[in-house]
Design a protein around this nucleic acid. Structure first.
Length: 210
DNA sequence: AACTCGGGGCA
DNA sequence: TGCCCAGAGTT
């Protein structure tokens, strides 16, 4: 089974395990998801969803974020890690949306990654979950780890991993694949204790002994 | 390529 | 108490 066949088999099995997979971050708009994804860096989606439940009621437009003081925004996300950095990102991002994008979240990778705090991972999450666009593959720590375990890539640089995955995966599955791997990473293929016994991929996984 | 930001959850 | 966690920017 070459890598292209392997990816299709992985998608087929995980799709059955996680039907209609999508981000676990709660959002009502593109702006919500941009903010939620920035907040999610190096933390858990559970922590983020706790904060955004109230945050998204208070801040509904780019203007809402731009018009509040940095200290107040920091306070509103204080339970999140790196909250000072993230508050700065969000405020600068809101300004840029207003100045250059008419207050709206852009729909292309090239534009999204110019926003403060938004890298390819965040951009891919937003593009796929909000607009249904497959422009790349979101590579987070889960995707990074599992892609190597499965032998789909040998690289460690997220951008190279994304390139590798894009080459062996049909474009229509780009967004879905990353989310399937993220779900697998959260529930089964955990960083510390991968549970091979309940993993639907154990028989085709080089890292499983079973 | 390595370093920094960092509070909350859970064992 | 100690360790880990849906990244991105800077040096």
């Amino acid at each position: 089974m070459d890598k292209k066949e392997k990816v299709l088999e992985i998608i087929k099995r995980l799709d059955k395990r996680y039907p209609n997979v999508k981000t676990a971050l709660n959002f009502n708009s593109a702006l919500d998801l941009v903010v939620a994804t920035i907040l999610s860096a190096q933390t858990t989606d559970i922590n983020v969803n706790k904060v955004t439940e109230n945050l998204f009621k208070k801040y509904q437009t780019a203007d809402d974020y731009a018009n509040v003081s940095l200290t107040e925004l920091e306070n509103d996300i204080k339970s999140i890690n790196f909250y000072k950095n993230k508050a700065k990102y969000i405020k600068n991002l809101a300004k840029k949306l207003i100045e250059e994008f008419n207050g709206q979240v852009p729909k292309t990778m090239n534009e999204l990654v110019t926003l403060p705090g938004v890298g390819r991972k965040t951009a891919n999450i937003v593009l796929w979950n909000v607009f249904g666009i497959n422009e790349g593959i979101a590579v987070d720590t889960h995707v990074k780890r599992i892609s190597k375990l499965l032998g789909l890539t040998e690289n460690t640089d997220p951008d190279k991993i994304e390139q590798d995955l894009m080459e062996i995966t049909p474009r229509k599955y780009w967004g879905k694949l990353s989310h399937l791997l993220i779900m697998l990473g959260r529930e089964i293929c955990k960083a510390k204790a991968p549970n091979h016994k309940i993993c639907p991929l154990s028989d085709i996984c080089p890292s499983s002994t079973t």
